[in-house]
């Protein structure tokens, strides 16, 4: 079976000559559809760079990046924007909601860029908010919501685009441990019930424990990979 996401001998370096920094130093990685992967590692280990490449926000300096078997390493900015729009959903540590914009409008955003007319996108956005348990809060501004609720809106926004993969970059980093576990239970449920592949970066062992597979980065290389547990 073709992996959903595949990195082959991927390197990513910044700067030139003496000052060159290798963030990724030849990484091979395959993630199959339906997996829940946690990526850990110290700062500067290359985990964020790997996430950016998987999230089509960045390009490898060399090596191949395959998504659903198609090579994407050579795509230009706008082509990568189309991949993000159609297959990927993002959840960030800092929530990254548009300020002074209601929850519903935030969730609508990816649908607007997909060109879906208001009549069809409103029910999609509403049901995404309902899935994360925020029905009745559609008209609230981010400022009127708690951190946990803001992160739920962000997850609903990622869900609205009907993605194959949700990329979560320290999704619980700005939350207290209680809210953090609630968010993790939500992501776990989405992975289990909706079959959405989740790739998550985290610093915390107990958060990583929600995943089915743990990958550890050190100095631009994968130093530990628990491998896929039997698919549920």
């Amino acid at each position: 079976m073709t992996p959903l996401i595949e990195l082959r001998a991927v390197t990513r370096s910044y700067g030139k000559g003496e000052a060159e920094v290798r963030a990724l130093d030849g990484v091979d990685l395959a993630i199959r559809a339906g997996e829940f992967v946690a990526i850990m590692g110290p700062s500067g280990s290359g985990k964020s760079t790997a996430m950016n490449i998987i999230g089509c926000l960045d390009r490898p300096s060399s090596g191949k990046f395959l998504f659903k078997g198609a090579e994407l390493q050579a795509l230009d900015n706008d082509q990568r924007a189309l991949i993000r729009r159609n297959y990927l959903g993002f959840v960030f540590q800092g929530f990254n909601l548009l300020p002074r914009t209601t929850a519903l409008e935030n969730v609508e955003l990816p649908l607007i860029y997909k060109g879906i007319p208001p009549a069809r996108r409103l029910p999609v956005a509403r049901s995404a908010l309902a899935k994360v348990g925020l029905q009745g809060r559609e008209g609230h501004d981010p400022a009127q919501l708690s951190g946990g609720q803001q992160q739920r809106v962000a997850i609903a926004r990622a869900l609205a685009g009907n993605p194959s993969v949700i990329l979560a970059d320290e999704p619980t980093g700005n939350l207290d441990s209680h809210r953090g576990h609630e968010i993790m239970q939500l992501l776990q449920a989405l992975n289990r019930d909706e079959g959405i592949t989740i790739v998550m970066v985290t610093h915390e062992e107990d958060i990583a424990a929600y995943a089915n597979r743990l990958i550890v980065f050190t100095d631009g290389l994968i130093t530990r990979d628990t491998g896929a547990k039997a698919a549920a």
Partner: peptide, 16 residues
């Protein structure tokens, strides 16, 4: 800038 980043991440093209 951050708002533009969010828009790009959810799939806005540079033309949009």
């Amino acid at each position: 800038t951050r708002e533009i980043g969010i828009r790009l991440a959810v799939g806005a093209t540079s033309v949009q």
